[in-house]
Simulated scan of single mutants.
Amino acid sequence: MAFQTIAAELQKLVADWTETLESLPPQTIADRRNGQDRSIRQIVGHMVDSASNNTHRVVHLQYRESPVEFPNYSTYGNNDKWIAIQNYQEEDWQLLINYWKYAHLHFCHLIQNINLEQLDQQWHADTNQFVSLKEMVEDFPRHFKLHIAEIEELLNQQ
């Protein structure tokens, strides 16, 4: 998938979901919990972390020697530590939506400007696991949609 296409898809999802997120009642975003015991607030916060971490990876992978040693915040429960330490459950909702929106829009801008000569650069994601810049960017929409689906599931709870 071309990075322009990925960016356009993400930009549309962000535009569509910004309105949805802004319309949610406070109790819904705070109280409903998914199988990971995350509220909608916490899922959105995790998505901010994901956009931020992936932004750093994309930048580092374009100038550092491969493979890049970069912490994988999503393994060993570290992403839950990020959520707790940043206390997304108590973050101002409108600010959190804006962080989410603009972190993803910036990521879209960034991937449209990737040096294509660096696509094979890799980061050391985990023990014996290496992920190329190309693979990482191409997988980002799947991860984004996974969390949107979690939010949708919580919204559909009775």
Rank of each mutant, 00 (worst) to 15 (best):
A2T: 15
F3H: 10
F3S: 10
A8T: 08
A8W: 05
L10Q: 05
L10A: 05
L10W: 05
L13S: 00
V14S: 01
A15I: 02
W17P: 00
E19N: 09
L21H: 02
L21P: 03
S23I: 06
S23M: 00
L24N: 01
L24I: 05
Q27H: 09
G35Q: 10
Q36S: 13
Q36C: 10
R38V: 11
R41L: 08
Q42R: 12
I43V: 06
H46I: 04
H46Q: 04
M47V: 07
N53F: 13
N53A: 14
T55H: 11
H56G: 14
V58Q: 02
V59E: 13
V68C: 11
E69C: 13
F70M: 12
P71E: 04
P71I: 06
N72H: 03
T75W: 10
T75Q: 13
G77H: 05
G77A: 07
I83Q: 07
Y88K: 06
Q89N: 12
D92N: 15
W93N: 04
W93F: 05
Q94T: 11
L95F: 12
N98E: 15
Y99I: 14
W100E: 05
W100Y: 06
A103Y: 14
L105K: 00
F107V: 02
F107I: 01
F107Q: 03
N113M: 13
I114W: 11
N115P: 10
Q118S: 15
Q118I: 13
Q121R: 14
Q121I: 08
W123D: 03
H124Y: 09
A125G: 04
A125Q: 00
D126C: 04
T127R: 12
N128E: 08
Q129M: 10
V131G: 07
L133P: 06
M136Y: 10
V137Y: 00
P141D: 03
R142C: 09
H143A: 00
H143M: 01
H147E: 07
I148D: 01
A149N: 03
A149P: 08
I151A: 03
L154Q: 01
L155T: 03
Q157N: 01
Q157W: 06
Q158K: 11
